[in-house]
Nucleic acid binder design. Structure first.
Ligand SMILES: [Mn+2]
Ligand SMILES: [Mn+2]
Ligand SMILES: [Zn+2]
Ligand SMILES: [Zn+2]
Lengths: 168, 168
DNA sequence: TTGAGATTGAGAACAAATCTCAATCGTGGC
DNA sequence: GCCACGATTGAGATTTGTTCTCAATCTCAA
């Protein structure tokens, strides 16, 4: 009982951002190039959906979860399925453009990290605000701990939960 | 369409651990007293199920998730529903007997912390092993970060993921 | 231009956690 | 000890985030 109509056709809107070797009315951005090269190197295809998602991610200057993200796209009239978003974000992660922050809450959130450095998070339990911090000292101590145990660290999550100064 | 039969009766097995002022064939443990006092103070009832769960938690000397925990109880013939476990563990948390460790993986896990100190975790992505560590220096640095931002920290999660020395 | 193979979307499937509510239990007051 | 009544339980339903399915569709190297 699956709907038969699909991709209600229409505006292909290639915008020239992706055309293999066509003129570029809009110069390709860094992150577009990064993503394109990544896809190519992996034998993956540069689809309209993937590009739309990429652009949208880089318009967000904040942390976001997938549902919220999907909703915003729909409101703008950008037709991309939730499934594609769930499939594309891990790709963006793999090429280092996006970071998935697995929270201790139920939903993971994402943020683009184009050229940004690793950091950890303070999460306000009242208003949901997410603040960032980076402590070289903490990072060093973690490395030290792993070294002592001969544990090969691949990643870590440090999330401090509490109340921000506005909610105290 | 709910089953009508309930609590297939039988062995009440009070074991004397909970009797209000009866003789105590088995001396009450610390944690039993802690839990009992907590329940009393909150006007909650000391039920067979809660006691069974408590005992079982303190037989586990490791981290466990609820489903695994429930399964083990069933195998032993201890009849307690998953729902009751989901309801009781937060109580044990509130009275400080148990710690819920929200991981970056999907399932949270628990551990009893009777008299034990806060610590953080190294998780091996190959074998699933969980190792513990405690770094006063890291804790201090976190406090410092919160102070600087006037953030009131209630809890934190620090989980380092990677490969343990046996899996490297 | 074309076809093999990758991708998509809608909804189904999954899984952890929470909720529902009738049947049952625990406890303080008698 | 017995009672009454609020608390608790269990089985299944529900919720919710995420992943899977697969026919239709698209992409791109040749
Ligand atoms: Mn961040
Ligand atoms: Mn632990
Ligand atoms: Zn806040
Ligand atoms: Zn291991």
């Amino acid at each position: 009982m699956r709907k038969t109509k699909r991709r209600e056709g229409g505006k292909t809107d290639n915008r020239g951002t992706a055309g293999p070797s066509s003129r570029r009315p809009v110069p390709e951005t860094d992150y577009e190039a990064v993503f394109r090269d990544f896809l190519q190197a992996r034998g993956l295809k540069l689809t309209r959906e993937r590009m739309v998602i990429l652009e949208e991610v880089f318009k967000h200057d904040d942390h976001f979860d997938i549902d919220e993200f999907h909703m915003k796209m729909r409101k703008k009239g950008l037709k991309v399925s939730r499934a594609s978003i769930y499939r594309t974000l891990p790709l963006l992660q793999e090429c280092g453009l996006v970071d998935e922050v697995k929270t201790t809450e139920r939903q993971a959130f994402y943020e683009h990290i184009h050229g940004r450095r690793h950091h950890d998070h303070l999460v306000c339990l009242s208003c949901g605000k997410v603040m960032e911090f980076y402590s070289p000292a903490i990072e060093r101590l973690q490395e030290e701990i792993c070294r002592r145990r001969r544990f090969k660290s691949l990643r870590h999550v440090l999330e401090i939960q509490g109340h921000c100064k506005d909610c105290a």
